[in-house]
Amino acid sequence: MRISIPKEIKNHEYRVGMTPAGVRELVSHGHQVKVGVDCGAIIGFSNDLYLNAGAEVETVVEELFDWAEMIVKVKEPQVEEYQLLTSNHCLFTYLHLAPDPKQAKGLLSSNCTAIAYETVTDALGRLPLLAPMSEVAGRMSVQAGAHCLEISQGGCGTLLGGVPGVYPGRVTVIGGGVVGINAARMALGLGADVTILDRSLDRLKELDGIFGPRLKTLYATVDTIEESVISADLVIGAVLVPGAAAPKLVNRQLLTKMKPGSVVVDVAVDQGGCFETTRATTHADPTYIEEGVIHYCVANMPGAVARTSTLALTNATLPFVLELADKGVEAALLANEPLRQGLNVYHGSITHPGVADSLGYQYLSPLSAIQKD
């Protein structure tokens, strides 16, 4: 199969869809690989490393797309990218379509096959391609929040870990999934007073077993969310409904009750965010203030630590890329139900129920779409 790995063009996005080691694996299976010139140079993956791994380096983006059968990326295609897609392409990347009707329309118009990392499942129903970036984002959320709490950043001047004789900062994490558990781990490591909320009692029991009495666990209700948000110095939104828009769990009125200079970090921003006041920001301009509360809502947080993120992402995606390339896209999707859960768009149809429901499109099951074609 002919596989292209373009250079990412989203604002301050330095990750790349495949490491040189990943390319070498693909080439060893008999596949042809082209990479965009300097696609990984800034994170230490030079053109020479890709050439030594067996790839070709392409300087013309249009040629990179025209030549490819499968395109492996990190972030959702930008306008100038999805305009290059056709029915001959399989796009494999993060899509986050639920809050992005413009991108959905562009992918539908292209008639391409689009498989989203964030909705691929495993045999246990987990999200193996979302997990590594959720781990990174969860850990970064505390790092970013702690920085925003500094007076020079407009924060209230609270040190999360405190010092002897002084209370530590209070951190509230809404959501006990992969993002939440990693955020809690980092905040506890700093010495903060941490509360995590979730609606799964089994998950709360699991978290209690992992962290013991150091971590406060609460069943998420309107009351417990309100109480925990109001008392917090830092609130981390870590809610996920696979494929669908994130629920708005913190409204503007509740924000007005938070202390001035407190911070919210919305890791759910890719799916529209779980704060009413969320709007996506970039690493170039990461924060804004609403109701006296600093908002950090960068939509590609792991891009700030792009080398670590790229290595972790390739470890997770490579087996799926190999399966798609070795078997062919349709055959791989028909044979692998967890991979088939990742199919969001297929030749003009929306094939994920969460995306269809969020955007108001008619849903066509992946099996029906493939077999109809």
Rank of each mutant, 00 (worst) to 15 (best):
M301D: 07
P302M: 09
E337N: 09
L254W: 01
N336K: 02
F211R: 01
A244F: 05
A68H: 13
L97H: 09
P353W: 00
G261S: 12
V239M: 11
Y296V: 10
L333V: 09
S349F: 09
T224E: 12
V355W: 09
T256R: 14
I289Y: 01
S110N: 06
S309C: 12
K259N: 11
Q153W: 02
Y94M: 05
V57I: 11
V23E: 05
A98G: 04
M258T: 12
V267D: 11
G191E: 01
K372W: 01
D202T: 07
N88W: 00
V163Q: 05
A187I: 06
K102W: 00
S228R: 03
K34P: 01
Q143V: 14
D66I: 00
L130A: 11
H89C: 12
Q103V: 13
L234W: 08
L108G: 07
I294E: 11
S231F: 01
L322H: 12
H96R: 07
E206H: 08
T287M: 09
A268W: 08
P366K: 05
H89F: 14
D373K: 14
S109I: 04
N300L: 09
L64G: 15
C148T: 08
Y361R: 02
V61Q: 15
L49R: 12
L197I: 03
R139G: 04
P101I: 15
C156W: 11
P286H: 01
I9R: 10
M18H: 04
A104V: 08
A220L: 15
P6R: 00
V74E: 13
A306V: 10
T195I: 13
E81S: 10
E56H: 03
A21K: 10
E150F: 08
A325P: 05
I289S: 11
A55Y: 00
E76P: 03
V163H: 00
V293K: 08
Y94S: 08
Q271V: 06
I71N: 11
Y219S: 09
K248C: 07
V305T: 13
G36R: 03
E150A: 09
G292F: 06
L367M: 12
A268H: 07
V355A: 09
T282D: 13
L85C: 10
V267R: 10
D223K: 15
E76W: 10
A116G: 12
R307D: 01
T93E: 01
M258K: 13
